[in-house]
Nucleic acid binder design. Structure first.
Length: 476
RNA sequence: GCGCCCUUAGCUCAAUCGGUAGAGCAGGACACUCUUAAUGUCAAGGUUGCAGGUUCGAUUCCUGCAGGGCGUACCA
């Protein structure tokens, strides 16, 4: 590819600097201040950052320099820097990293400005930055070259600060309550804990196929067997499925398990956690998400799956296939005809009910057939003690009372085996069943999609906006 | 996977009922020692995503491909 004229120009300056004996890629520079800490009465200042704007005035110039804490104006003046230094300054481009030294003053217009007495080039930038005023809008470049997005769009670093803060607060919240953070295998012999298509990889030395985990669940519950009563993990899971605004092949999940609890306890914990996160990060209990106002004030509504379908679609009998198919048709749902009652109901739920769940709602009591790791309800073995949490129409959390009866668990796994699914290894995890046979305390388990929670708290419409490097097809 | 839409200068955007692309920013030259989207003057910058087709002529119309966006399906 032909090199752009803009790059040629910058390389020319690079060479000229080298000829003057200036190293354009500097070393350690010790700062006395970050930009945000600089005040009018701050004396001598040494700070570093990236030049983001230049305004020349013949024998003087203003520049804006940016560090992680903010932006400030620099004033370069011929008779302060000296002729020689000023000539070097003229070879500075927007995008260069500079270490500067000087004293603070206010300009005539009142702007806090650093009068530069000396500076060092810390890194020469060879490529032009995106436009200063409109930023970088091309979504593809924003995702592929996130570093440019971070430089050009103020909102982007803000999102990732919030994301980091959120995960921090989750850890704090759980640690305070006696949960132990653990790390369990991402490469698993039998991918369990969900029913998604896994990624396959191969270990050479062991000469065995391994699967990237689709969920950490079965390993975390082995830890309950081992007596670690409260454990959690915040890390990636991988699902080899379609990519859209809510799904990325690798995504971050919180899974937490609490011995001796049940899904009711988890509802309390989940509600408390999310409310406290909103308060800490946004400073309030109301959030705006995609033109919707969401009120997080507890207590949150709890309604069974059946009741929700009754309320929004006026039917409640999962065995009435005829009626459900009619409703599905009315909603323009494409059905293959092979779906069972719940699958149709689930489709109807997703199309009709879920988008209406703006304020937080716990949907309770799912059919046993779709929840092979959940404990049945004592009064109705067709249903399990499970909830999903919806906020802003997004599925945010999934939790249940954990099934700890090994014989029942085996029957559920066997039921599951009957369902064909392409690309999913159909193997019963005997090791897990063995662990249950040693005895696992009754427990509550919770999974929260961290990416979606971040979407909610940053008002992002796509999961890609909250992932630094979302998955895209390779170029070309 | 399917459907619809998008792709023009480094960036942000114009334009063409088919007649050969224009501006701002950035970059270059000159001027300018308090500007802040600095200013003024001048010059430069493009295989209009890629490959074909129709046409005297395609950036525009058509087909295919690539990448992206949105929707839909899979993701219990």
């Amino acid at each position: 590819m032909e090199e752009s004229e803009l790059i040629v120009e910058r390389k020319k300056k690079l060479d000229e600097l080298k000829e003057l004996g200036i190293e354009p890629y500097g070393r350690r520079f010790t700062c006395t201040h970050k930009i945000a800490d600089i005040k009018e009465d701050t004396g001598k200042v040494k700070m570093a950052g990236r030049i983001v704007a230049l305004r020349g005035h013949g024998k003087a110039a203003f520049a804006d320099i940016k560090d992680i804490t903010g932006k400030m104006q620099l004033y370069f003046k011929n008779d302060i820097l000296g002729e020689e230094k000023y000539e070097i300054f003229k070879k500075i481009d927007i995008g260069d990293f500079l270490g500067v030294e000087g004293s603070v003053f206010r300009t005539r217009t009142g702007e806090l400005t650093l009068r530069v007495r000396d500076f060092k080039i810390l890194a020469k930038s060879l490529r032009p930055l995106p436009e200063k005023w409109h930023g970088l809008k091309d979504v593809e470049i924003r995702y592929r070259k996130r570093y440019l997005d971070l430089i050009a769009n103020e909102e982007t670093p803000r999102i990732f600060h919030k994301r980091s803060q959120l995960i921090d607060k989750i850890r704090e919240f759980l640690n305070e309550r006696g949960f132990l953070e653990v790390e369990t295998p991402m490469m698993q012999e039998i991918p369990g804990g969900a029913k998604a298509r896994p990624f396959i990889t191969h270990h050479q030395a062991l000469d065995t196929d391994l699967y990237l985990r689709i969920a950490p669940e079965l390993y975390l519950k082995r830890l309950l067997v081992g007596g670690l009563e409260r454990v959690y993990e915040i890390n990636r899971s991988f699902r080899n499925e379609g990519i859209d605004t809510l799904h990325n092949p690798e995504f971050t999940m919180l899974e937490a398990y609490s011995a001796y609890g049940d899904y009711q306890e988890m509802m309390e914990l989940t509600q408390e956690l999310i409310v406290s996160l909103a308060k800490e990060i946004l400073g309030k209990e109301e959030i705006n998400y995609q033109e919707q106002k969401i009120d997080l004030k507890p207590p949150w509504q709890r309604i069974s799956l059946k009741e929700s379908l009754k309320e929004y679609c006026s039917f409640e009998d999962f065995s009435d296939l005829k009626k459900m198919k009619k409703i599905a048709k009315g909603l323009n749902l494409e059905l293959s005809g092979k779906e069972n009652g719940f699958e149709i109901a689930d489709n109807i739920f997703k199309k009709r009910v879920q988008p209406a769940l703006i304020n937080p709602v716990f949907i309770l009591d799912y059919p046993r057939s779709t929840s092979p790791l959940a404990k049945s309800k004592p009064d109705n073995t067709k249903l399990v003690e499970r909830f999903e949490l919806f906020i802003g129409g997004l599925e945010i959390a999934n939790a249940y009372s954990e099934l700890n009866d090994p014989a029942e668990q085996r029957r559920r796994f066997e039921e599951e085996l009957k369902e064909e699914r392409e690309g999913v290894k159909k193997t019963i995890d005997e090791d897990y069943l063995e662990a249950l046979e040693y005895g696992m305390p009754p427990a509550a388990g919770l999974g929260i999609g961290i990416d979606r929670l971040v979407m909610l708290l940053t008002n992002s419409s796509s999961i890609r906006e909250v992932l630094l490097f979302p998955q895209l097809k390779p170029e070309q």
